[in-house]
Design a protein around this nucleic acid. Structure first.
Lengths: 205, 205, 205, 205
DNA sequence: CATGAATGAGCCTTCATTCAT
DNA sequence: TATGAATGAAGGCTCATTCAT
């Protein structure tokens, strides 16, 4: 668990996390001032430190919270879905939709990568590893069923994840996040055409 | 031009840039100490400011230099190449190869995105826009020649760029940059299968 | 009385004082954390403030308690003793023995001198003044009886007190408190030889 | 050497040390504000850190400087002196005179003992060890010459040092330092009478 | 031009103290 | 009465930037 500091008041805990997302996303890690976070969360600066220990752990907890929400969003979107193509398409769509609705989290995502590259159990990587397993199963099944080509599952999974990640990181700049969902959809169409055994039609969409 | 400051000594100018790449890549933007950069470049701290104005501009110039080298690498790789598929494949390979050989630049790339998201004419975006034009021409020609499906050129280009970008950013962590080239190759195979009119074979590679 | 705050529970009061000795002796006044004292005393932080008002007063009360114990130790040791030489020797021995058994108090002693030099009715000085009177009487008597030289009583008393104080403060470092008693004994032998009218023997001890 | 930080300007170096003596003596270690020291030295706060690294090292350097001056004072006073009794008397007098003229240093002395008890190569102890050797030689010679009793040299030296230390620490409070010299003189008379083979007269002074 | 000593704004973090429960 | 969560003033330290030499 990231938060070894006991949580006394879940309301305050959440208020601080919400303020953190805002401030870190706006100012970056180095540029963020813990005092500003405290002010926006309407708590004393000491309280921020009581709950999260230090600036770095606060940031990591913020990223962690974002990843949890993302994961929940995706899992909810693919609940009861069984078809591999639908699974891929819907999870990608949920991924894009999440960051389109929460562009601040895309900033957190990139900041974590930039500030703590590998030096620390990268929250995003932890979640990626976990969800990657699910995706690999889906692709493996698609290949087994003759739906997909005999792709190298691990490589195809990486391509999928990197495509989504690159699109979000690139697309969430300058408030361009509005088109994120459709950009991802088109990219995933190409990806699917790339691994499907029988091409479905002329051109995507 | 980014460096409005007159360059007196190209040797020193380059030494500072080289030191910058190292230090920024190692420590991030906020964590980098201009004194350390000056020391590694074997010049006085004042000289760094003489040549680059301030820390931010130094960073931007560093990123700019990286982009120039990347661009040169790619252009060299596709010189005299005419076939759209080859053009796509070889430019992707050159892109991956560059970051595999210069993983520090991948850090610079991500730092620029993280620290200066949109607030500043993003060097990377400038180059991307420029090279995107070239790529769009290639895809447009592939479509016209019946080699590719009737994809939406702009979307396909984005997918290609985001796929490369995501792979590099993700792949250059933890010293995993070794496999970067092959990961990109596989991903581009899927991408190509995704836009080719006639699938070339069973599975990529 | 130092503690104007009414004492509700003598057990807690004492527990806090005991914890204070430990923590102040270990960490100094500035370095001590009231929370740590509360934890060691097994009471809430608020209770510490209830009983002692503030950190400074807590420290002063701690020093006060030490002085009381020291005084009791010495008075007990010289009870029923009448000979001036024995009185001097035994009180010095009791002084040394007390700090050898309670080296933490030597730290408190030095901290009080260091942190509150004169700004505050120095507990140690209060006790010193009181006990100094007793000692002056003893020396005055020794002089009157022809046992001691015609020393200036006030100066001799000061020399005695400063000798003891200096030895304890110097000797309680580095866990060297073990030899404290014998060091004081030897020093007092020299002191006694210095004020005795007729030297008793060749060399002390 | 304590000061690993290169000294660029001896004037500033000294100005900071002078300000340090004042501020530490007035406010204690924890109570001292480096900004105040910088202000009194008429330099920027950063300059203080440039020259002394951190607050603790600044304090230690301050104590070190005091010890050097004390040592120089004493050595100057006993230059060309040969008689053991004179050596003892004059060095004690110089010791007292130094602290009477520089009562702030007495505060530094006690602060060092209080804050850094043994945790750090105590500057005072280092000097004491060095000068103790000289004193031991003097007493040894006095004993050999039949001038002093057959005292245990080490114990007598400790008694002497502790007597001086205790007197200074006790006597420099509340601006009582005026009487320091005479108090020490009287105490040393008793000490000398205590170790002399043949008592010189009735009573000291 | 080049330098690096000097500066001080800025920010993280601690902890004495308070007060609602 | 006892508690300990909350607070924010205070201060150590860093480092981008400047400017006298």
């Amino acid at each position: 668990m990231l938060s070894v500091h006991a949580v006394q008041d879940p309301i305050k805990h959440q208020a601080i996390l919400n303020a953190s997302i805002e401030v870190f996303a706006e100012s970056g890690f180095g540029g963020a001032d813990v005092q500003v976070i405290a002010d926006r969360a309407d708590v004393g600066k000491g309280t921020v430190y009581r709950y999260f220990g230090n600036k770095k752990d606060l940031f990591l907890a913020t990223a962690d919270a974002g990843m949890r929400r993302l994961e929940a969003s995706i899992l909810e979107a693919i609940e009861d879905v069984d078809d591999p193509v639908d699974l891929i398409r819907l999870s990608a769509k949920a991924y894009a939709s999440f960051f389109q609705r929460n562009p601040k989290f895309a900033e957190i995502l990139i900041l974590e990568r930039a500030e703590f590259r590998g030096s620390i159990p990268d929250t995003h990587l932890v979640y990626r590893a976990k969800n990657r397993g699910i995706l690999e199963e889906v692709i493996k099944r698609g290949v087994r069923d003759g739906l997909f080509r005999k792709v190298i599952v691990r490589e195809a999974t990486s391509a999928f994840a990197n495509l989504l990640y690159g699109t979000v990181v690139t697309g969430c700049m300058e408030g361009e996040s509005r088109r994120l969902e459709s950009t991802v959809e088109y990219a995933i169409d190409i990806f699917l055409q790339g691994i499907l055994r029988n091409q479905k039609g002329e051109a995507p969409r």
